[in-house]
Design a protein around this nucleic acid. Structure first.
Length: 1134
RNA sequence: GCCGGAGUGGCGGAAUUGGUAGACGCGCACGACUCAAAAUCGUGUAUCGCAAGGUGUGAGGGUUCGAGUCCCUCCUCCGGCACCA
């Protein structure tokens, strides 16, 4: 027999398989279930590395095994071909990125083919191919039309040297990855996808997915949902202006509707006057009557703020038309002016024929605020547009409490009536402790104060130290991400002069700050500072000398140790003191160790009936330590509650500690009772020693308070909180939110910015028309082809290189046919990869991105294999994308991937990540040439479990081990006997079939291979017959597909082994007739025994008893445990 | 700081999910073949001990007849997030 020549065998069979089209996958196959095995498609970097082998060749094992089991398996491949490296190479070497990419793809395809993997190349998908990106553009336009793609001024990473926007991934430690210059934040108009609309569903739907817990956790964490409340803090502006508000109600409305009363109460509390005229005939309103009533209700002047709701808006506009002098401000909510207005819900038809004089209206007001609720049932988009164009003002779209602003407490409206700062908090329970507000530098209030809009009507600046604030805002805008991080320890900020906010709970005025520890993009960009119960706020308040107000008394539960709470036992209340005792002359403190429970802290003891806590402290100091002259200094804050188990009292104790500070006058002492001195150890300690000594949370809080305290952020009961005192924090949160705020959920997740000022990507198919705005390119004009340009460097202005292609930019508007310009940004490559798996199902379709019927054959993906680096990027983006397609009715499932596995990582031989600079890169081509594709693939499968978050170094010696195995298989082939071999264990054969099959299914390729090795070791001793040999070859085929095929064909088979059927095992032949059992005495193995497989428990026990007889001699057997077929354990008295 | 995951021979890793810890492979040692080497084959290989017998899965404690596996405390490493209110 010839020696094993891997090159010859592998070339031969790869060609053969290709010629026969062995891996062409049909959409359906008779009698076979479809299985979609997906692996992340590669970026055509130009060279295959070991990681690619690991990603593509190893899952191929599963693909092959599933096919042999009778599944119709789709295992496709393609190229994620747009992206930065092509462009960088183009800039560096003056190449065409398209050519560069094409060349790489061709080369890599050759390399991938050398794996002998069962890819169906006829379904290849290449994202930079116009036949693909045509559909990327089309899908983007569907998003646009659904309102899921929008353009917005967004803060981006800007590299001043390369003059381009950078993706977050391109910023390394605050520097540009390419030129190493510092990245700055810059506001730019960017295309966004509304992934935040899907935040909740992206979290909820994780539950039903068969995904590793770790990915689910990461995604949840990334989305960062947190429930809390929005709370309004009214502003007191100076010079303080008091206004008269005239509020006009709508059709069928009355002045005493709850929301009007609520607005009135709130505004009056701020010192304003509120008038709500009752408009006549609300069931059947006429123009003259209503306007007359509104006009006579008040003498309108520059101090008037006029508000209209619904029909009241129209009345308000009519009022303005007729005035002689301007008012301060006009606020309209849910208004309409369109003569065609019809409110079907309330039979309001044909009556509304009012006409407006826009010029007269504008003459009488210099600030108009329009607010619109997108859910409004009475006012349509169309009517809103009419109103907007009449007044020349853009409406602000806000979420009202109830559609059409009809909630009982329309806080969102109130925010427009009076100047207000809204904060988001998850700790509404600490509202009474809010002693200041902090605004992000990006906060609208700060920004508008800086811009000093003349509309505001203030003669003086809103903020009297405006210059200082401006300087601070500018400074923090220049801060790089790097600085923001290193600045974490030291909080900075500037107090706003001339402005105060009102804490809505206490009614007290509190100062405002601008501080960059507040993030502009999270929550409302403003936080309430509660120094007593938040570490950051505490640090800030200490630095800026803001008062600290305790509103939560700690409630501590001891859950571990000797005094851990015992849930089932009763509980009694106790009042005690904690006494921090200072030395009479030195900087030392009394440290007390209570021996029975090893409680280390300060003096403590119970308050007797009617006793003053200070007296208790003195008494306990005397009794526990002997010192008789203690002077009470002060109380250290409010009560500290603690629940624990008392072994002395045999009950749980709910103890209420009053923390106190004492100083000794001198060292005079009295004798200590023996029972006290036995239980207490007393020492003098320095402050540092005490810090290390104290081991109880309650004592530590008391001790810390002697030094100014730290923020207590845990649970407790409320204090200094008016009607909410003594409520638990959880309950207080609900109560205070209901009374003074709005429930609100916020997310860390931000919308997905998809604009890239780059050349090598999908052109965004939008035309900017000066008349029609952003207009989608019509379907028939897709794809918008990437134009050829001379050089690929971005323009200095932050426009992509596409802007240089004049003939590309200049187009006719698809709507009005006038002159317009194309969008010149390209799409993030993550957009390309958000739907590529759908195209595999129908790769050649010219009419649709993928026919629904064809998708249904394969979707959702049965198993998606990929790298851990995509956990929160690609996997989240494509889930969002798929959900949006689902809502558009374009796909049938809300989730694209039923099961996901993150593969491990292959490191260099030195255990480090492979990289050229480290010189530890393994070149797969070289290893394949030397050892063969079968060996490389099988080795990679053997190094360790495939679906774990771990990494394995490439061990050159280890590869040799696998190569040896294959050579031994090769040699074994010549020893296969033609007769029937009686020596080989049937049990081993059946066990092997079972284990190899199950382990492949569980993606534990390493143990499957180990079983094949065990099998080979055995047959080398016993020999094997032809029938059994062929079974073995079948088991080997998914791993070493070429060798197995060669030996299969050598054994006389004509048809490919890969078209053969997976062997079945015989359930009854999985165990030997006689089995080995362990014999234990007191759980320690003392011997082994052979028993018949069929023997019963008693026989096994008796056999065991005999086998270890001498050990049991004269001992009493308390218990005998028999685990049939496994072990017998005798428990004896020693 | 928060959320995950993991710590088992000289190394990569197994362990029927609470039942004889170290499968399989690498490495190493010895032996066979050879003039010799390589390759190949065989034997051994957690550790202490001549042995009987101990001891052993990051450390300590617990539950159990029995713990690598479950519970508590702690340590180390890796991954993700991080001034997120």
């Amino acid at each position: 027999m010839k020696a094993y020549d891997h090159t010859r065998i592998e070339k031969k069979w790869q060609k053969e398989w290709e010629n026969k089209g062995l891996y062409k996958t049909s959409d359906t196959a008779k009698g076979k279930d479809n299985f979609y095995l997906l692996t992340e498609f590669p970026y055509p970097s130009g060279n295959l590395h070991v990681g690619h082998w690991y990603a593509f060749a190893v899952p191929d094992i599963l693909a092959r095994k599933l096919r042999m089991e009778g599944k119709n398996v789709l295992y496709p491949i393609g190229f994620d071909a747009f992206g930065l490296p092509a462009e960088n190479a183009a800039i560096k070497h003056k190449l065409d990125p398209a050519k560069w990419t094409r060349g790489n793809i061709e080369y890599m395809k050759k390399q991938i083919r050398s794996m002998g993997a069962s890819f169906d190349w006829s379904r290849e998908v290449i994202t930079c191919d116009p036949s693909y990106y045509r559909w990327t553009q089309w899908l983007f336009l569907q998003f646009f039309k659904k309102g899921l793609a929008y353009r917005k001024e967004t803060a981006v990473n800007w590299c001043p040297k390369d003059k381009t926007v950078l993706a977050n991934e391109q910023v390394v430690d605050g520097r540009c990855e390419r030129c190493d210059s510092e990245v700055v934040q810059k506001m730019m108009l960017q295309w966004n996808l509304k992934i935040t609309d899907y935040a909740d569903r992206l979290i909820e739907d994780l539950t039903g997915l068969d995904w590793p817990q770790q990915i689910k956790d990461s995604q949840r964490n990334w989305i960062g949902r947190s429930e809390g409340a929005e709370i309004d803090f009214p502003l007191r502006l100076s010079p303080e202006k008091k206004y008269t508000y005239v509020l006009l109600h709508g059709f069928t409305g009355t002045p005493d509707a709850p929301r009007f009363l609520y607005w009135k109460t709130e505004l009056e509390r701020d010192g304003h006057t509120v008038i709500i005229p009752a408009l006549p005939n609300t069931e059947n309103p006429s123009e003259d009557e209503q306007v007359e009533a509104a006009l006579t209700a008040h003498a309108y002047d520059g101090n008037t703020i006029l508000f209209g709701h619904s029909l009241g808006c129209a009345v308000a506009l009519k009022v303005l038309e007729k005035l002689q002098r301007p008012i301060a401000r006009l606020v309209l909510a849910g208004g309409f002016v369109d003569p065609k207005f019809i409110d079907h819900a309330r039979n309001f038809e044909k009556r509304f024929r009012w006409k407006f004089d826009a010029a007269a209206i504008k003459r009488n007001v210099n600030m108009i605020q329009l607010i619109h609720d997108p859910r409004d049932y009475a006012v349509s988009e169309r009517q809103l547009l009419a109103l907007e164009s009449l007044l020349g003002v853009k409406a602000l779209r806000i979420d009202s409490q109830e559609p059409h602003f009809t909630g009982e407490k329309e806080l969102p409206v109130l925010r427009f009536l009076r100047p207000t700062i809204t904060v988001f908090t998850t700790r509404a329970d600490t509202l009474f402790g809010a002693t200041y507000l902090s605004l992000a530098p990006e906060h609208p209030f700060i920004q508008s104060a800086i811009r000093r809009s003349p509309n505001e009507g203030f003669t003086k600046p809103l903020i009297s130290n405006l210059e200082e604030v401006k300087a601070y805002v500018e400074r923090s805008a220049k801060k790089t991400e790097l600085e923001r991080q290193t600045d974490q320890k030291e909080k900075t900020g500037v107090k706003l002069a001339g402005v105060m906010a009102v804490n809505p709970a206490t009614g007290k005025e509190i100062p405002l700050f601008v501080a960059d520890y507040v993030l502009g993009h999270y929550g409302t960009g403003a936080v309430m500072g509660v120094p007593a119960h938040d570490e950051r706020d505490f640090a800030f308040a200490t630095k800026f000398k803001v008062p600290i107000a305790e509103v939560v008394q700690p409630v501590l539960l001891r859950t571990s140790g000797a005094d851990a709470l015992r849930e089932k036992e009763s509980s009694t209340d106790r009042t005690s003191v904690l006494a921090v005792v200072k030395h009479w002359s030195e900087e030392k403190y009394l440290a007390v160790r209570y021996l029975p429970t090893d409680t280390r802290g300060v003096v403590s003891g119970g308050v007797d009936q009617g006793e003053d806590p200070a007296e208790t402290g003195k008494r306990e100091i005397r009794e526990e330590t002997g010192y008789s002259k203690a002077r009470f200094v002060r109380q250290l804050g409010g009560t500290i509650h603690c629940k624990y188990w008392s072994d002395v009292r045999k009950t749980n104790v709910f103890c209420h500690f009053t923390p106190l500070l004492f100083q000794l006058e001198d060292g005079s002492m009295q004798p200590i009772e023996p029972h006290e001195s036995e239980r207490h150890e007393v020492r003098w300690m320095s402050r540092v020693e005490m810090d290390a000594f104290i081991n109880r949370e309650d004592m530590r809080i008391a001790w810390n308070r002697a030094w100014g305290g730290v923020a207590y952020t845990g649970e407790g009961v409320l204090t200094n909180s008016g009607p909410y005192n003594s409520l638990a924090t959880v309950d207080a949160q609900k109560a205070i939110t209901a009374a003074l705020g709005l429930r609100k959920t916020t997310y860390k997740l931000r919308d997905w910015i998809v604009s890239r000022q780059r050349y090598w990507g999908v052109p965004i198919p939008i035309v900017h028309c000066p008349r029609c705005g952003s207009v989608p390119v019509s379907d028939k004009d897709l794809p918008v082809l990437l134009p050829k340009v001379k050089d690929y460097l971005p323009e200095g202005s932050g426009k992509s290189p596409l802007a240089k292609a004049k003939s590309f930019v200049k187009v006719k508007c698809p709507q009005c046919k006038g002159a317009a310009e194309r969008e010149t940004d390209t799409l993030d490559t993550f957009v390309d990869s958000s739907w590529y798996f759908l195209r595999y199902a129908d790769p050649k379709n010219k009419k649709e991105f993928a026919a629904r019927k064809k998708q249904d054959n394969w979707m959702p993906v049965n198993l998606y294999s990929g790298g851990a680096e995509h956990t929160t990027m690609h996997l989240l983006y494509s889930r969002f994308w798929h959900k949006a397609l689902f809502d558009l009715g374009l796909v049938k499932d809300p989730e694209p991937y039923a099961k996901r596995m993150n593969r491990s990582l292959i490191l260099g031989p030195d255990g480090q990540k492979m990289s050229k600079s480290r010189g530890n890169v393994i070149d797969p081509d070289e290893v394949v040439a030397r050892l063969g594709a079968d060996t490389v693939r099988m080795y990679l499968a053997f190094v360790g479990p495939y679906n774990e978050v771990s990494s394995f170094p490439w061990n050159p010696d280890g590869v040799v081990g696998v190569r040896r195995f294959i050579e031994r298989v090769w040699r074994m082939a010549s020893r296969v006997s033609l007769g029937t071999n009686l020596n080989i264990s049937e049990v081993l054969l059946n066990k092997t079939i079972k284990k190899v099959g199950e382990d492949i299914q569980a993606l534990k390729f390493n143990t499957a291979i180990s079983q094949l090795m065990i099998f080979l070791n055995e047959i080398e001793k016993t020999g094997i017959d032809n029938k059994q040999w062929k079974i073995f070859l079948k088991l080997l085929a998914p791993f070493a597909s070429h060798v197995a095929e060669e030996l299969w064909s050598n054994s006389g088979e004509r048809k490919s082994i890969h078209l053969s059927t997976w062997p079945k095992y015989d359930e009854s032949k999985l165990r030997d007739e006689t089995i080995l059992m362990a014999i234990q005495v007191n759980g320690k193995t003392r011997g082994e025994m052979k028993v018949a497989q069929s023997s019963d428990k008693l026989t096994q026990e008796n056999t065991a008893r005999e086998a270890v007889g001498e050990r049991l001699e004269g001992k009493e057997i308390i218990r005998t445990i028999v685990v049939p077929g496994r072990l017998v354990n005798f428990v004896i008295k020693e």
